[in-house]
Nucleic acid binder design. Structure first.
Length: 573
DNA sequence: GCCGTTTTCGGCCCGACTGTTTTCAGTCG
């Protein structure tokens, strides 16, 4: 059974939890967590690095000791250190740590004083009233824990970015209407455009923190107030989304925005740089002794540690600080750079609008061209196109191109990649098209080897141009199919193909890490809406967010090209 | 356990809020 990066990271995180419960050296605990994060965000499999004899200590946060442990886990699939910890400390205690209000100290007290070793033990002890008498616990904690157990709050719930936007953006607008409120910014992972967010951080500048907090907790979608203070407050909305409000003064705005945008590990790295320069960086500013030396703008915070401005999407401590120091930050692609969209459906299959309506909607959003890509015949559910209907659609596109102003329609198809790597339509039917998006819509469960070969074979078809939603995942619903993305990207380069970054909020596929890999390999990425209605072109902004997280510049994105340049690239194959 | 503009030992980010407390520990972000 192959060991993936996520498996190694999970083992390190569990070790960190257990060491923390046993009150081990907190810096040692941190080392495990840092290493876990480092491995998780790696673009390549650790096992592949090891096979090639790479030195793992070159990875950030991995020293000689952990490199050895990683090698052991990669070889055997398990960790002797973790096994040893389990002998002393039950594994289920890490579950307790996930409950709100329970950290390592309290879990340790529950275990050592009350012999609680599982969620079930905890429930029984709470109901028997034994927990409240423990030092550090009380009646309120007891109630809170019982509630958490009932609502299964132990499970982490994350919201897709587009869903979070639906709740957060109106709330921000509501806060802006308050008198005395200056800026309102949604910070946190939302601002970094992560594909899902755990909670929302709203940053506000205002004269009176008390008044803003009052208005905040009075918002009519608030279900529960978790905490309320003059600078910080937290509520849970009826949707279950947690929102944190932070109020700061104008002079602190930049420092606070930087701090509350995160990520946490990016912030720590920047603070350490401050420390090395004799500066203290917190959410109120940058200070030398008692004197404020920066913090009104984010740029001033970066400047204080001799860095240029780093875009929020890059702030994951995945090399952006190093790149900034060397003046090698990418100039990230922007929504306005997109000249066209190469994935859209119509009424002919499972879309909701005609070709003409889709064309006009794309034009109204400022696009110069739109590729029509309905499904192919295998998708009978979607009434997929056979060669005859595809040809008829081509004629319709020719007629519209002759009449429509300000937009060029391109003839395409989203053709199914069959189990053996053949395409769902004959070459003859594909030959008359401007481009071909090929996608996997079936047989997700193939082995990694067969799935990879299936896709590689499909890309070898002379008409194949873009690999649609390359990993096949649906965020929060269905994981990616097993596939060797490194080989797929190499294959795309060798075959002269492109990869799609599907902008649909449920897909956002390519992932950020894979975008970076494509960029490094010189494979262009097409940021496509996969629109099924005229409204769906709005989704492109989420695709661009993901592209920016993947370090993509304008030139790395296929559909920033003009129609003419695009045609040149499409026919090169 | 990692790391080096404080380089191979001695550091390791920083502050707010809550609850259980009489001055603070624990948790959280």
């Amino acid at each position: 059974m192959p060991v993936h990066n996520a498996d190694i990271a999970a083992i390190f995180d569990e070790i960190a939890d257990l060491l923390e419960i046993e009150s081990e050296n907190p810096f040692r605990v941190r080392a495990y967590r840092t290493a876990a994060q480092s491995i998780r965000s790696l673009g390549r499999e650790v096992t592949a690095l090891l096979d090639q004899g790479e030195d793992l200590t070159r990875l950030p946060g991995i020293g000689k000791d952990l490199a050895g442990k990683i090698a052991d886990i990669a070889r055997s699939g398990h960790s002797e250190d973790l096994d040893a910890l389990h002998k002393k400390t039950p594994a289920a205690l890490t579950e307790l740590m996930k409950l709100p209000g329970l950290g390592p100290k309290r879990v340790s007290a529950l275990y050592h004083d009350l012999k609680i070793r599982s969620l079930d033990d905890l429930r029984k002890a709470l109901e028997a009233g034994r927990v409240r008498d423990l030092s550090g616990f009380g009646a309120k904690t007891e109630v809170r824990l019982l509630e958490a157990l009932r609502s299964e709050a132990g499970e982490e719930r994350r919201f897709k970015l587009a869903v979070a936007a639906q709740y957060a953006e109106p709330l921000a607008a509501y806060l802006e209407k308050q008198k005395g409120v200056g800026s309102v910014v949604i910070a946190g992972s939302f601002r970094r455009r992560r594909e899902t967010v755990g909670d929302i951080d709203i940053l506000v500048t205002a004269r009176s923190g008390r008044e803003v907090a009052e208005r905040f907790v009075g918002y009519d979608e608030v279900d529960r107030v978790v905490s309320k203070g003059t600078t910080r407050s937290t509520v849970i909305l009826r949707s279950g989304l947690q929102v944190d409000l932070r109020v700061v003064s104008k002079v602190s705005f930049g420092a606070a925005l930087h701090y509350f945008t995160g990520s946490k590990s990016h912030n720590i790295a920047v603070r350490r740089m401050g420390q090395q320069r004799g500066l203290k960086i917190n959410e109120y500013g940058v200070f030398r002794d008692e004197e404020r030396v920066a913090g009104k703008t984010e740029a001033s915070v970066f400047e204080s540690v001799d860095l240029p401005f780093i875009e929020p999407e890059l702030r994951e401590n995945r090399g952006e600080i190093e790149a900034a120091r060397k003046g090698r930050l990418p100039e990230l692609v922007e929504l306005d750079d997109l000249r066209g969209d190469l994935h859209a459906h119509t009424k002919a299959t499972d879309g909701h609008a005609s070709v003409r309506e889709m064309a006009e909607a794309a034009r109204d959003r400022g696009l110069d061209y739109l590729g029509i890509t309905d499904h192919s015949r295998r998708l009978t559910m979607a009434h997929g196109l056979d060669p005859k209907r595809l040809a008829a659609q081509g004629e319709e596109i020719d007629r519209l191109n002759a009449r429509l102003e300000g937009i060029t329609l391109l003839k395409g198809i989203e053709v199914d990649i069959l189990e053996d790597g053949r395409l769902d339509l004959p070459d003859k039917a594909l030959a008359g098209l401007d481009f071909v998006v090929g996608s996997v819509h079936s047989k997700f469960e193939l082995s990694r080897k067969r799935q990879t070969e299936r896709i590689l074979r499909a890309m070898d078809n002379p008409h194949f141009t873009i690999l649609g939603h390359p990993s096949g995942r649906l965020i929060g619903e269905r994981g990616a199919y097993e596939v060797d993305m490194e080989r797929v990207i190499q294959g795309a380069r060798d075959a002269g193909c492109f990869l799609e970054l599907n902008a649909h909020p449920e897909r956002l596929d390519l992932t950020d890490v894979h975008c970076q890999m494509a960029r490094d390999a010189g494979v262009l990425v097409s940021v496509n809406s996969d629109a099924h209605s005229t409204m769906d072109f709005d989704l492109l902004r989420f695709g661009i967010g993901q592209a920016r997280r993947g370090w993509l510049e304008k030139d790395d994105v296929l559909n920033t090209r003009s129609v003419k340049a695009l045609r040149g690239l499409l026919t090169k194959k």
